[in-house]
Write a protein that binds this DNA or RNA. Sequence first.
DNA 1: CCGATACCATACGCACGAGTATGGATTGCG
DNA 2: CGCAATCCATACTCGTGCGTATGGTATCGG
Lengths: 192, 192
Amino acid sequence: MNASAKPERTRLSAEDWEDAALKLIADQGVNALAVEALARQLGVTKGSFYWHFRTREALLQAALERWEQYGEREVISQIESMPDPRARLPELFRRVAHELAPHRVYAALLKALDHPQVVPVMARVSQRRMEFLTNIYREAGLEPVEALNRARLTYAAYVGFLQLNFTLGLPRISHEEFDAYVEHMIRTLTPN
Amino acid sequence: MNASAKPERTRLSAEDWEDAALKLIADQGVNALAVEALARQLGVTKGSFYWHFRTREALLQAALERWEQYGEREVISQIESMPDPRARLPELFRRVAHELAPHRVYAALLKALDHPQVVPVMARVSQRRMEFLTNIYREAGLEPVEALNRARLTYAAYVGFLQLNFTLGLPRISHEEFDAYVEHMIRTLTPN
DNA sequence: CCGATACCATACGCACGAGTATGGATTGCG
DNA sequence: CGCAATCCATACTCGTGCGTATGGTATCGG
């Protein structure tokens, strides 16, 4: 009940703490990131934590940087390797829509945009994704300005969707209904 | 410097506290809602607060309910009184885009969707707005399912925009650029 | 096998914010 | 005027969560 049923690691590393922190952030948000709570969850006490990190702030910083570097890469490169530019957008939409798990941290950080430490991280990540999206729209045939605005619109829709359906539980949309929504989104936001 | 330069009210009412709370929420988020901080800002002490409210939680509840009832109404009725259904959507978009101030509380509450007290309020408000939007799309000629999905998309774009440009300060978009974005959004999301 | 280093537990101190107790001041009303 | 009710100040208590001090246990190289 109270004991940790985890992989029974004998010793912990800084990376273990960072991963646990990211997991906790994804589950309960940045505010819930408390060192004693984390320690309990890992089956140790604060004494361990303060050996690996100088402060709680340092852990958050390390976890955020870890998340920023670890993320991306896979999806972006896979999409860019597709030969037909027109086929990239629908594929990207469907892929993102059906792999929501990796976006749970992003959704949680969205709710912590008042925190000084997360703002720069989110600004960088969002900026990179926006540029990626803008490029795809250009390659799909849109004029530069059109592509930028369409990317803004698309990314805003993505962010808003995370908020409305992830954290807020708007009238529990069904699976088929969700697929229909995604297809509608593709028709509406994709050129031609 | 430290004294309150406010309207110099001699006595305070519960409504004064609720308004101050909403102002503070809009400025610094729900987490920043502390009774001693509020008291300082109003030029009084906690002693006053605990006469009007039983607890901090009660204040938040009252403020949220006040916001929920006070909001809406104006925009909705004005839009619905427009004769030409096709003209309603562009008007709604432009209106919302240029009056962002009233949406600062909504943006702040969006970041507090982990808080049990705000979830039901936001669910109700968002639901009502979504239904309003869906109706407009239907009156503009969309099929029921199409109208619903388009409303979802539009509202998600609205929510995402608030997050990205209000709280996060993505590369400070200029005034002309913003207008262009709004027009692009109208072209993209409006039928025909 | 044994010391040094890495890792962790226990027991503190301390700041901060919510809530309470109690008395003082101000206002409305008879 | 004078007394009640209303509104507010001061001075506490108490829980919570960060950070520290210090000593204990495991692990590894020589």
